[in-house]
Simulated assay, not measured.
Amino acid sequence: MNPEEVIQNLETRIKELEDSNLRTYADFENTKKRLEREKTQSLEYAYEKIAKDLLPVIDALEMALKSVDDSEITDEIKVKFKEGLSFTLENFLKTLERYGITQIPAEGEFNPQLHECILQAPSEQHQEGEIVQTLQKGYQYKERVLRAALVSVCKH
C-alpha cells in the first residue's frame, strides 16, 4: 500500500468515527431529554394516588351534610352543624384545587371520557344525550380523570 492510500484509508476511518461519534452524542442527548420529560411528568402527577384516596373523604362529608336534614336534632343545631360541615368541605375542596384536583362538571352534554352513564331516563327538560342527574361527583387531577362522574343521561 502506498502512502496516499494509507492516508486515504485513515481519512475515511476518521470520517466514519466522527459520524459514529455524532450519532452517539445525538442518541445521548435524545435519551437525556426523554428522561428529563419523564421525570417532570412523574413529579407533576406525584399526588395522583393520594388524591384518589381522598375522594371518599369528600363523599363522606357531602353525605353527612345531606343527612343533617334527616336527623332529629333541633333546627338551631342543624343550622350550626350544616355551617360547620359546609365550611370544612369548602376548605377541603379549595385545598385540593390548589394542588390541581378539581371536580368534573356534570351538566350539559355527556362526555364518555369524563362521565360514566349508569342510568338512562326520559326528561322533558333535557335533550337526548344530556346529563339529567349526577349520582356521584367525578374528579380529575390536572388532565387525568381520578374518578369519572356517575350520571344519568336523557333518553327519549
Score class of each variant (00 low, 15 high):
residue 154 C to S: 13
residue 153 V to D: 00
residue 154 C to E: 14
residue 49 K to N: 14
residue 16 E to D: 09
residue 47 Y to C: 14
residue 13 R to A: 10
residue 32 K to Y: 12
residue 43 L to G: 12
residue 108 G to T: 04
residue 80 K to E: 06
residue 68 V to L: 05
residue 80 K to A: 05
residue 98 R to L: 01
residue 5 E to R: 06
residue 92 F to A: 11
residue 143 E to I: 02
residue 15 K to N: 10
residue 114 L to S: 08
residue 145 V to G: 05
residue 104 I to C: 01
residue 65 L to I: 03
residue 104 I to S: 04
residue 153 V to N: 00
residue 47 Y to N: 12
residue 43 L to F: 10
residue 139 Y to K: 04
residue 129 G to N: 02
residue 130 E to H: 14
residue 49 K to D: 15
residue 93 L to T: 04
residue 143 E to T: 07
residue 73 I to D: 02
residue 58 I to V: 11
residue 140 Q to A: 12
residue 69 D to C: 01
residue 51 A to Y: 01
residue 23 R to W: 05
residue 147 R to E: 09
residue 126 H to I: 08
residue 37 R to L: 15
residue 61 L to E: 02
residue 64 A to Q: 00
residue 5 E to D: 12
residue 35 L to P: 06
residue 127 Q to E: 15
residue 91 N to R: 06
residue 52 K to Q: 14
residue 10 L to R: 13
residue 33 K to Q: 15
residue 146 L to D: 09
residue 91 N to I: 05
residue 75 D to N: 02
residue 22 L to D: 15
residue 156 H to E: 13
residue 112 P to L: 02
residue 95 T to W: 00
residue 69 D to W: 04
residue 133 Q to A: 13
residue 78 K to S: 04
residue 120 Q to C: 03
residue 84 G to L: 00
residue 125 Q to F: 12
residue 4 E to P: 04
residue 146 L to A: 06
residue 53 D to F: 04
residue 30 N to R: 11
residue 50 I to G: 04
residue 38 E to Y: 07
residue 32 K to D: 10
residue 112 P to T: 00
residue 22 L to W: 11
residue 36 E to K: 09
residue 12 T to S: 13
residue 103 Q to F: 00
residue 109 E to N: 06
residue 142 K to G: 05
residue 56 P to D: 09
residue 47 Y to V: 07
residue 58 I to Q: 00
residue 52 K to L: 09
residue 101 I to E: 00
residue 56 P to C: 02
residue 4 E to N: 12
residue 125 Q to R: 14
residue 115 H to E: 02
residue 49 K to H: 15
residue 28 F to N: 07
residue 23 R to D: 15
residue 21 N to C: 13
residue 137 K to L: 07
residue 126 H to N: 12
residue 110 F to K: 02
residue 77 I to Y: 03
residue 123 S to V: 08
residue 145 V to R: 03
residue 34 R to C: 09
residue 136 Q to M: 10
